[in-house]
Computed example of a mutant assay.
Amino acid sequence: MAKGKLTFEDINVSVNVPAGTRVIEISEKVGAGIIYGCREGDCGSCLMKVDEGMEFVSEPSALEDKVLKENLAGRGMRLACQAQILGEGEIKVRPV
């Protein structure tokens, strides 16, 4: 199975993750600063910046696009709960 290298720049931790993994899943496991309030109804709180490797991250869904626009997210911004690693490549992310 293809794996990507995901680096959380806020804590300087890199992990190899299988394709299809959502960034938020790994963020929780390694203790990165990407927070989320989905369980409290605060959609958009897991906003993150992809500093490198956007080509190795899934395209935003229509719902994610809507939330990004509502939050006035800039270029390279994604929701960690929606962004999936596509495969081999290096991805660098940080909380917003």
Rank of each mutant, 00 (worst) to 15 (best):
C46S: 03
I91S: 04
Y36P: 01
P95A: 13
E55Q: 13
G41V: 04
A2D: 15
C81H: 07
S45I: 11
D10W: 02
G74C: 08
Q82R: 11
E88Q: 13
G44N: 09
S14G: 12
Y36N: 11
K3T: 14
I11P: 09
I35A: 09
G87H: 08
V67R: 05
P60H: 11
N16W: 14
V57Y: 10
C46T: 09
C81D: 06
L86M: 09
K3H: 14
G87A: 08
S14N: 10
V13H: 11
C46I: 09
I34A: 03
P60R: 13
L68G: 06
S45V: 01
K3P: 06
V93R: 01
E55M: 08
K49D: 15
E59W: 11
E70K: 13
C38H: 10
R78D: 07
G53P: 05
A2T: 15
G87C: 09
K66E: 05
G33Q: 11
E88C: 08
G41R: 01
C38Y: 04
E90H: 13
R39D: 05
L72F: 13
L47C: 10
P18S: 13
G87I: 06
V17T: 00
I11A: 13
V50Q: 07
C81A: 05
L72V: 14
L63E: 09
K92L: 08
R39F: 04
I11C: 11
V57L: 12
G31W: 06
K5W: 02
Y36T: 08
E40D: 10
R78A: 04
E70L: 12
K29D: 00
D10M: 02
S61M: 07
I26V: 15
E52T: 14
M1K: 15
F56N: 14
E40P: 00
M48F: 14
G74R: 06
N12W: 00
I24R: 06
G31F: 07
R22Q: 13
K66Q: 02
K66L: 05
N12G: 00
E52S: 10
K3A: 12
N71P: 05
I91T: 01
I34P: 02
G87Q: 10
K29T: 03
V93F: 02
E25N: 13
I35L: 09
A62Y: 01
R22I: 08
A2W: 15
G31M: 07
K69I: 08
M77K: 09
E25D: 14
V96P: 07
L68S: 03
E70A: 12
M1S: 15
A83E: 05
G44R: 06
A80H: 04
P18L: 13
E70R: 12
K49W: 14
N71D: 14
K92C: 07
